[in-house]
Computed example of a mutant assay.
Amino acid sequence: MKRFLSMLCALLASLGITACDYLNVRELKPGVSTAAEVRERFGPPQQEWHNDDGSVTWEYSRQPEGAECYMITIGTDSILREIDQRINEQTFARIERGMTGDDVRRMLGRPASSQFFQLKQHTVWEWLMERSTTVNEAAYFTVSFNNEGRVVETGRYSKPKR
């Protein structure tokens, strides 16, 4: 039964459905779990980031519908080192003026959307921070880039419930 649930969660995750992420994160153990176990639970990564020490960080963004982005680091020994959910205040605070789109993407993962504003000559990426509920509006974190592809500002906004 446990194996069936793992396979179902991996299939749902590959389709962008995050209901099983909580279970997957709890079951994986840094220093113990293997890269194969991570792939079995999360599916193939959307992006692979190669690190200076030879390790690789796999990106599992749940944008645009989910408010999560898991960056999972695998060591050169194919053992899980770290699972980090990046859609949070600590990561937002690290976004600085002058960073490139690749710098931001590596920190926050794939954005929920990207839009170019002609008058301002800025491209704005946004990430869902909090889903809309019966009580709360959906909240977004934004990063604006100039024509050179450098961060010029960050912001936040909420979408009213429909």
Rank of each mutant, 00 (worst) to 15 (best):
T18W: 02
A19Q: 06
C20R: 06
D21C: 03
Y22W: 07
L23K: 07
L23Q: 11
V25P: 09
K29E: 07
G31Q: 01
G31V: 00
V32T: 11
S33E: 08
E37F: 01
R39I: 07
R41W: 11
F42V: 00
P44C: 00
P45L: 05
Q47K: 14
Q47T: 08
W49H: 03
N51I: 08
V56P: 00
E59D: 01
E59T: 03
Y60Q: 00
S61L: 01
R62A: 15
E65I: 12
G66D: 09
G66Q: 09
A67W: 03
E68N: 13
C69H: 01
Y70P: 03
M71W: 01
T73W: 06
I74S: 04
T76S: 12
I79H: 04
R86F: 06
R86A: 10
R86C: 09
I87S: 04
I87F: 05
E89P: 02
Q90D: 13
T91H: 07
F92M: 14
G101A: 15
V104P: 08
R106S: 08
R106H: 14
M107E: 10
M107K: 09
L108V: 06
G109V: 02
G109F: 00
R110W: 00
R110F: 02
Q115H: 11
F116G: 10
Q118T: 08
Q121I: 13
W125Q: 14
L128R: 12
M129R: 12
M129E: 14
E130C: 07
R131Y: 15
T134V: 14
T134E: 15
T134L: 15
N136D: 07
